[in-house]
Design a protein around this nucleic acid. Structure first.
Lengths: 236, 236
DNA sequence: GTATCGCTCAATACACTGTATCGCAGTGAG
DNA sequence: CTCACTGCGATACAGTGTATTGAGCGATAC
């Protein structure tokens, strides 16, 4: 051995490596970043840094950033507990709807990624399967197309409602604090607008409504939707 | 005058300027870019270039890029034709829902911007006013909170449904052509997945459903939602 | 035991983003 | 004629995703 002293020999980088990587680890790190700082915090460089790795290292495990986002989405789908098979359909769809909502509460970025690209990950497929299985086979829904229509409607509502809700809470905690805070902030403009008298109903909302926020409406809306489906598909 | 010849005097850059700018013009240019190339095509630099201006010039008219996006959204809201006051409520809400859908068909990026931040532009306020006014004052909806709940539900559905629809068409025309095309592309993977037998209902959808796409479902879904609302708020 | 192959990771590079800063040119006022 | 001011443009900076390249190592072949 020519170099006897330790300091002459560079620390053997060792194949086990400072950090062995895996999709699992990468996705977990990315989710953590997104949870704590929003989607913008998820950049290839930052995820890599969180794992003590160079940015390019990730491309061994993931072909593109979008792919990473897809993996994150599927991971969250996996967190959703599905209704036991055989549950009554209204209860089952309610469970499924709340599953998304709860997931989005934990991971506010989730809802932003939903609906971007299609989701074909195993967990997302399982979620869809469970949703459809909820109605499939019941006499009230004679064909698979009826099932698709009903489930699709519920999912559309959920996506929109949760999206609104998340946007709202996001704004609350970004713009400062409560809603009154906000009302004071954009108050002058809104005040002037409402004062024009062109928006009487909006004014009523501002001044008379109990909750201006969309949060509490989720269950109301969901039961509207389920009622509507039930109306068209009453058990014969 | 010392410089007699024209060529000695630089063309008076003239305050009227190579291109007089205005919010109107900027927003229009941005929308054009977004329509033809998607939201990514909207960058400060590109919009400015489309107007023969330097990038920084825009910041005289708009404080930030998000502000520009807000303006674009409000512009599109302005394109939506609202139902005449006094229209029967189901018809009115249907009109309003289709308004969003048509707008999103013309401007696919519209739906992506909806629900990001809140919309307080004049056109968007007018849109909300019209939506709420549709139900306000009717005996079936005694308080403004009932109105909010019903309208909110419809809007949530619309947002979700149109979002799905746009995502779908986007994928279709990006990935190549028709749906069969796609089925062939991600076929191997999906084939394997379905072959596991873990997704029987999904398999049924793939093989038995008439339309796998969400497009045609909009009206079905909307009538579910309206039915549901009607069920809870029948004219006394 | 040595030379070579191949593979894996990291550094660099590129084109691009939004926006802060700064200097200059041209206009109007005195 | 000069000066201050204003508004525009170029430049600069800190980021982004990702292609390319080069270096280092382990395993394999002789």
């Amino acid at each position: 051995m020519s170099n006897e002293v330790v300091w002459d020999r560079p620390e053997p980088p060792s194949k086990p490596s400072p950090t062995p990587l895996s999709r699992e680890l990468i996705v977990r790190a990315a989710i953590e970043l997104a949870d704590s700082g929003g989607l913008d915090e998820v950049s290839i460089r930052k995820v890599a840094a969180a794992l003590n790795a160079g940015p390019m290292r990730l491309y061994g495990y993931v072909e593109t950033k979008d792919e990473l986002l897809d993996l994150m989405v599927d991971e969250v789908y996996g967190e959703i507990t599905l209704p036991a098979p055989g549950t009554e359909w209204r209860a089952a769809l309610t469970r499924i709807a709340h599953g998304i909502r709860e997931a989005a509460k934990r991971h506010p970025w989730f809802i932003d990624l939903l609906g971007g690209r299609p989701h074909r990950g195993p967990n997302s497929l399982a979620y869809m399967e469970a949703s459809l299985a909820t109605l499939d086979g019941r006499p009230e829904f004679p064909t698979i197309d009826h099932v698709l229509g009903a489930v699709g409607t519920v999912m559309a509502f959920v996506r929109g409602a949760v999206g609104n809700e998340i946007a709202e809470t996001r704004e609350e905690q970004s713009s400062g604090l409560t809603e009154e805070q906000w009302q004071a902030a954009s108050g002058p403009y809104m005040g002037r607008m409402l004062a024009t008298g062109k928006f009487p109903t909006l004014a009523k909302v501002m001044y008379d409504a109990e909750h201006t926020s969309a949060g509490p409406w989720f269950d109301t809306g969901l039961s509207y939707v389920l009622d509507g489906i039930a109306t068209r598909h009453t058990p014969a």
